[in-house]
Design a protein around this nucleic acid. Sequence first.
DNA 1: CATGGTTGTTAGTGTACACTCACTAATACA
DNA 2: TGTATTAGTGAGTGTACACTAACAACCATG
Lengths: 177, 177
Amino acid sequence: MSAEERREDILRAAVVEFARGGFHGTSTEAIAARAGVSQPYLFRLFGTKRDLFIATVNSGFDRVEATFTAAAGRPGNPFENMGNAYKDLLQHRDELMLQLHAYAAAGDPEIQAAVRARYAGLYRLVEELSGAGEEQVLAFFALGMFLNVAAALDLPAMAHADAWEHLCLGPLPDTPS
Amino acid sequence: MSAEERREDILRAAVVEFARGGFHGTSTEAIAARAGVSQPYLFRLFGTKRDLFIATVNSGFDRVEATFTAAAGRPGNPFENMGNAYKDLLQHRDELMLQLHAYAAAGDPEIQAAVRARYAGLYRLVEELSGAGEEQVLAFFALGMFLNVAAALDLPAMAHADAWEHLCLGPLPDTPS
DNA sequence: CATGGTTGTTAGTGTACACTCACTAATACA
DNA sequence: TGTATTAGTGAGTGTACACTAACAACCATG
C-alpha cells in the first residue's frame, strides 16, 4: 500500500480520535490502532503528534470548504444552500468536535497559526461565494459557531438550527428563486 | 488558613492553568504549584482532577452571570450594556480560553452535563434580563461565541466586536434612552 | 542477482502525571 | 492535660505515552 494511502487512513482515524479527546487527550497509539498501523509508522509519516493534529484539522477545513463550494454552486440562494449544507455537516459529531478542539488548542502557537490561517481562508471563501455584505457573513459564521457549541453540549437549542433564514437571510436584497 | 480560602486560591490558579492547556493538557501539579499548595492537598480538597475542572468552569460561569446581571441593572438598553460588558470579559484571555476548553471537553459525559446545565442557565438568564425576543437572544449568544473563537485565534475579526448593535439591536422595538 | 529505496514492525526508553499512604503540626475544647 | 479535628506535606506507585533505534520484508531497476 502506498504511503499516500496510509496517510489518508491515518488522517481518517485521527479525525475520530482527536474529535473525542482533543490534542492532549488523544494518544497516537489509539490513532495508529484505529488506522490499523503500528504506532512508529505514524511518526514516520507525520513526524510529530502536533503535525498530525494540524494535518487532521486541515483535512477538516478541506471538507467544509468543499461542502460550501458545492452548495453555493447549486441553484437558489447561496447562503441558504450553505446554511443547509452546514446543518448536514453538523450531523457528523466528529467533524464538529474536531473544530471545537482546533479552536481550543489555540493555546499552542503553532496550532493557533495553522487554525487561524484556515479559518480566515474559510471566511473569505464564504464572502466570495455568497457575495453578501459584511454583516450577513458575520452573522453566518456566528450562528455556525453557536450551533457547533450547541451540538457539542447536546443543547435543545439545536431546534434553532433553522434560524439561518432569519438571521442571515432576513434583509437579503437578492433572492433569486 | 481555612480550607475555604485554600479552595479559592486553588480555583484562581486552576482558571489560569486550565485556560492554557484544557482538561487533559494541564497537570494538577502545575495548578498546585501556582496556588502555593502541595499537590496532595489539592486532591484532598477537590477529590479528582475532573471535579476540580468542573468547579473551575462553574466559577467562570459565576463570573459571567454576575457581570451580565450587573450590566443589565445599569440604565440604558440592557442588551447593549451586556454586550459591552462581554467585550470587557473578552479582554481576559483566561476566562475566554477556559470557556472554549469547557465546550471542547464535552466529550466527557460528566463534564458535558455540568457545562450544558450552566450554559442553559446563562441563556435563560439573558432572556430574562434582556426581555428580548428569541431571535435577538440567539443572535446575542451566537455573536458571543464567534468573538470567543476570534479572540482565541487572534483574528482581526475582533474588529467586529462592535457588531452587537447591528446584529442584536437592529430591529429592537423598545430602546429606552 | 545485487543494491537501493520504500513500506513496515518489534522492542524499548525516559518521563510526566493522577492519585495514595503515612505521617506531622497546630488548634479546639472537654 | 488529653483527645479529636483540621490543615498540610514528603515520598512514592503504577501507568500511559511521545518518540527512537534497529531491523525485516518487499519491490524496483541496473
